[in-house]
Design a protein around this nucleic acid. Structure first.
Lengths: 338, 338
DNA sequence: TTGTAAGCGTTATCAA
DNA sequence: TTGATAACGCTTACAA
């Protein structure tokens, strides 16, 4: 049952009274001002703990003209596209860092109303900065944003977008490393199943594959385009085998496709990795669930989220010297398939 | 076109000056108070438009004691577990409704610090209500919340949790429908791969399966417990076949497991649906990516998010008569596997 | 180092 | 129907 009048949340004033100091002093302690004697600070902290004081964000924002909030902007299609852990994991990474700050995350799904409320909200001083999970598909309306508030993109945004910081994964190096694994274990006739070539990730991963082979002086086997789905991977695998039944290794640009490809090999009685070694990409759950556990290239999604948050917070704190682009390394995860 | 010094956002005062009225009147117009003469209202609206006035959320919250914010609380393990579209889709649904209101969504990943900042933040008047995506796993610390602010759970929370509203999916009816599909196409010897039995969804879906068979007067085939993963589904499928090689249908409690199960059938040369018909659950991306597109039971995730938001907003607007529990129906999606 | 006091932009209570 | 005028809880010069 609710009391007639809920005991209102403790204020600075009340904490001050409790600790025998003024509200200003409490404010200083809360904000970690150095000019407070350690003794008083201790008393105040005790009072804060005892009363369970939490700063009122509205009041704080009003007085300081800072929102103490960060927007997480997710293009709508992302929410539909990304079944895999990508988004969720990035969020975990972001959250990790934000938890230590006193910023709050405002989730905005963009594009339901691209030019209206969302933008006005973002530009209206309601958030101090924005994190955009773009995965290379960012809408251009976001470029307006970068001139108003600090923005960090996760994944390089579309070409037209100026300004902002970018955290990205080195796709070329990643697929190069994956391919090199195949070369290192002695495979000579190596094919690849790529992502859609009109997607940046698709072409970048193909580039890394080709570069690794070129460096090793090997001629590439069949290069077949896939669509990042399980069935697409299966279909592509069949095409690869039609084009060249003699291959002994295949680099597949996503784990889902690799899982599909593996079922095809299995059904044809081709042994992995004995007959054909296989390397995937993503280190998603699929990589652990295939019959032969998949050697794959891990994307540091959680680190990516953490880096995005770190950069934005640093910039909000006045860091001027941050590089505009941060490239995170990928990591080869060796399992049984190669 | 930008001035040297960004002109600070227009305030009520400025709009008032522009329109020749007091700030109070402007406030009334903004909030649609009926007691303003239409003529003045028009003038004020013109001034608002001309100046591009947007209310300052912080000031408004401070004065009205309403945060105009809603927390979306996601237990941390959810972010790890739910690769499938479940979470993302619910968020889309929530967002859909919130976009029309003037509430903002605060994303909170719970449990990094269960008893500390998050709870205090939630209870400190920083949000007006909370949406908890519990999927039956809600931590009990959330029960404290329900006595402070309105809470809507998506998925029935753990037993100990009192209060709050619940939006849930009818799992029993869903799996019953899925199983009935198998029966309808003439299968007689039907097995099931269940979810973990200690999870509510797991046991509920098993119950629906058994109920459908009982109604049809059929004896259940093997009932094997899975873990909702692809490889778990594969392993369970092998167990099913060991226990009874003669089955002609299988109801699988998640699409991921169904995908895994299907690879096993395929590798054994068993045709789907000719030899064994299969029905999955979730209608996740996996259902469209399997070799034989999966007939499956769709969870209305987006509608679930929308319902959660609707209910919370209604309650925040003073609705007292809302039922505490809302059950959403599932839907059978027929593809090729059954 | 600490306290006083003036805002921050709204809402809401009174009078007028 | 309108306009003054207090709050709301916090930050931040400015004094002490």
């Amino acid at each position: 049952m609710r009391t007639l009048k809920a005991p209102s949340a403790p204020t600075l004033e009340m904490v001050g009274a409790h600790a025998g100091v003024s509200r200003a002093t409490v404010s200083r302690v809360v904000n970690g001002s150095p000019k407070v004697s350690e003794e008083i600070a201790r008393t105040v902290r005790a009072a804060i703990a005892e009363l369970g004081y939490v700063p009122n964000r509205a009041a704080r924002s009003l007085a300081s003209k800072q929102a103490h909030a960060i927007a997480l902007v997710v293009p709508e299609d992302m929410t539909r596209l990304f079944g895999d852990l990508y988004l969720a994991t990035i969020i975990v990474g972001i959250n990790d860092r934000l938890q230590e700050s006193d910023y709050v995350l405002n989730l905005m799904v963009a594009s339901t109303d691209p030019h209206g409320k969302t933008m006005r909200y973002l530009q209206g001083g309601n958030v101090d900065g924005a994190l955009v999970v773009s995965h290379h598909t960012a809408d251009t309306f976001l470029s307006t944003l970068t001139s108003t508030i600090p923005v960090v993109f996760g994944g390089r945004p579309a070409a037209g977008i100026e300004g902002g910081y970018v955290v990205d994964v080195d796709n070329v190096a990643g697929s190069r490393t994956g391919t090199e694994r195949l070369i290192a274990i002695g495979r000579k006739r190596i094919a690849t199943i790529t992502g859609p070539k009109n997607m940046r990730v698709g072409s970048e991963r193909e580039a890394g594959f080709l570069a690794a082979l070129a460096d090793a002086g090997l001629t590439p086997g069949p290069v077949v385009e896939g669509d990042f789905t399980l069935s697409g991977g299966a279909a592509a695998m069949r095409t690869v085998l039609e084009q060249d039944p003699s291959i002994d290794g295949v680099f597949v640009a996503s784990d889902s496709m690799a899982a599909g490809a593996m079922t095809v090999l299995r059904s044809m009685g081709i042994q992995v990795p004995t007959d054909i070694a296989m390397v995937g990409y993503d280190d998603s759950e699929a990589a652990r669930s295939t019959e032969v556990p998949l050697t794959t290239v891990r994307q540091p999604s959680e680190e990516m989220g953490a880096a995005m948050a770190d950069i934005l917070i640093a910039v909000l704190n006045g860091a001027e010297d941050r590089p505009r682009t941060t490239i995170l390394p990928t990591q080869l995860v060796i399992r049984a398939s190669a």
